[in-house]
Simulated scan of single mutants.
Amino acid sequence: MAHPLQGAQFALAAHRLNQLPTDQGAEVAFAGRSNAGKSSALNALVGHKGLARTSKTPGRTQQMVVFTLPPLAQGEGAAPLEARLIDLPGYGYAEVPEALREHWKQEIDRYLHGRRSLRGVVLIADIRHPLKAFDRMMLDFCASTGLPCHLLLTKADKLSRNQVMQTLATRRRELADEGVPATVQAFSSPAGTGVEEAREAIAQLLRNAR
């Protein structure tokens, strides 16, 4: 059965912001630490195992990778929406040279602040661990700028159902206490947990007007 992200295709990999497609339409960015399973999550969401490059060595995504989607249907009478997914470079892995880390810190900051077609962020974090400094920085940025954020807690297959539910409740309570209006869900690429829920959340982000 067709789903909102079916038909995603690799478009380009950009080292600088000005190499991205024209700033029009709608796009959702994927962000997360290098070992959180971002590429695997992307592949599961679009239903294409080889679309986003996965590796046993985290941190291989060192460019902004653009995937185009088929035009996204909107409400009755509205023209289909030009849509994209943007895979941001994985953050926080020691093997990435300092100069490259600094380059991406600046480029991602410019991207998040200046990209008009950016409709939301999908933040990937390992459900087994507390949120890291980068995760909280991204959540705080989204909250302060009004950019919608969907927190995808990956590797849920590594925990029992009770542990997953407890962790979900804890994360939601933490975000509510901190005034961060992000949505949160559990996810597992190999088990397929939460895939449909996440697809619908991303489609909704793409349709959001800013």
Rank of each mutant, 00 (worst) to 15 (best):
G192E: 04
A41Q: 02
L88T: 07
E27T: 10
T61D: 04
V96H: 03
I86M: 13
E197L: 15
A99C: 00
E196S: 15
A198Y: 12
N208Q: 10
F141S: 09
S39K: 04
A191V: 11
P181N: 07
F67A: 10
A14N: 08
R16D: 02
L123T: 09
G146E: 00
D23W: 11
N162I: 08
M1C: 12
N208R: 15
A198V: 06
S40I: 08
T170A: 13
I86K: 08
A73G: 07
L51K: 02
E178S: 14
G59T: 05
T183Y: 14
E98P: 01
G92V: 04
L42C: 01
K49Y: 07
F187N: 09
A156I: 08
E102F: 03
L12M: 12
G192V: 10
G114P: 00
G92A: 08
M138I: 14
R116V: 06
D157P: 01
H113Q: 11
A156C: 04
A52S: 03
A169V: 02
F187L: 08
E178N: 13
G90A: 05
I108R: 15
Q24P: 04
Y91H: 14
L153D: 09
L151G: 14
S40L: 03
L69V: 04
A31V: 15
A52I: 05
G7E: 04
L112H: 05
V28M: 02
V96F: 04
A73D: 02
E178R: 15
R172L: 08
R128L: 06
K105M: 10
L205W: 02
A94W: 12
V28G: 07
E200Q: 15
T145L: 01
Q106F: 07
A143W: 06
R161T: 13
M137Q: 12
A125Q: 07
R60M: 10
M137G: 11
P190N: 11
L51M: 01
E107W: 00
V184A: 09
A125G: 14
R199P: 14
Q19K: 14
I86S: 10
C142N: 02
T183K: 15
R60W: 13
H129T: 00
V180G: 11
Y111R: 01
L69P: 03
A209F: 03
R199E: 12
A209Y: 07
V96T: 09
S189F: 01
Q185V: 01
G192R: 07
N35V: 00
P97H: 02
R116P: 05
S144A: 14
P190G: 13
Q163W: 10
G7R: 06
L51Q: 00
G114V: 07
Q24R: 15
A133M: 10
D126V: 00
L17S: 00
V65H: 14
G59D: 04
R210D: 02
A83R: 13
P89S: 05
L112S: 06
E197Q: 15
G179D: 03
N162R: 14
T22F: 08
N162W: 09
M137L: 11
S55H: 12
L153W: 06
P80S: 00
H150N: 09
H129Q: 12
I108G: 06
Q62D: 03
L205A: 04
R128P: 05
Q166V: 02
L12A: 11
V46P: 00
L20N: 01
L153F: 08
R84M: 09
H113T: 11
A52C: 04
